[in-house]
């Protein structure tokens, strides 16, 4: 009789412990450091991105950086792509670079992206009479497949000859394999 009472008490104790552990597990620890919890609490309001900046973010920003400057392995866009727009060949080259020409977006989107890109990151280098890219122009330019490194070298030499760039250094890349 005594043994059975002890056994029952022990069982009760185990059950209590188990219940306590279960309730501790079920307790929701408030996730105060979760960004969304903070956002909800502070009522942070984000403005939607423009279509062009969205195109840049989705297609270019990952490597070229949100400011158009990235690591030495990736060519810098900011403060220099505008130079290319100073000759017709250079203007074509900007659209014929493989990652622009072969981009899955439409000609209209590419035209919008290029105009936004040049005006946002390299307005000071654009020629004074710069004409924005049109959809039709991009459509034609994108069909060409160029030898990128050779074409780039030729354009830089030409820009230098026409005194459109102060020196070849402004368009130089850290690695010879880059274009």
């Amino acid at each position: 009789m005594r043994a059975s009472v002890r056994c029952a008490l022990r069982c009760c104790g185990v059950a209590l412990l188990w219940a306590a552990a279960a309730s501790a597990h079920a307790q929701n620890i408030p996730a105060t450091n979760v960004p969304d919890a903070i956002t909800r609490k502070t009522g942070l309001h984000l403005e939607p991105m423009s279509h062009a900046s969205r195109l840049y973010a989705e297609n270019c920003q990952g490597c070229h950086g949100p400011e158009g400057v990235s690591v030495t392995e990736i060519p810098t866009l900011a403060g220099r792509i505008g130079y290319f727009a100073r000759t017709p060949e250079g203007r074509s080259y900007l659209v014929q670079v493989p990652n622009v020409a072969l981009n899955p977006n439409s000609d209209q989107d590419i035209a919008e992206l290029m105009n936004w890109l040049l005006n946002t990151y390299s307005r000071a280098q654009l020629p004074p009479d710069f004409q924005p890219y049109s959809t039709a122009e991009v459509a034609v330019l994108r069909t060409a497949r160029i030898d990128v490194a050779t074409q780039r070298r030729r354009i830089v030499e030409q820009l230098l000859l026409l005194r459109q760039i102060p020196s070849a250094d402004v368009l130089a890349n850290a690695h010879a394999s880059l274009y």
Binding site: D36, R40, A57, E58, N59, Q61, G62, C63, G65, S70, V71, I74
Partner: peptide, 13 residues
């Protein structure tokens, strides 16, 4: 990493 890729997700909130 200084480079990344950019995708898009829907926030159910």
């Amino acid at each position: 990493s200084p480079t990344s890729w950019v995708g898009s997700c829907i926030n159910p909130d």
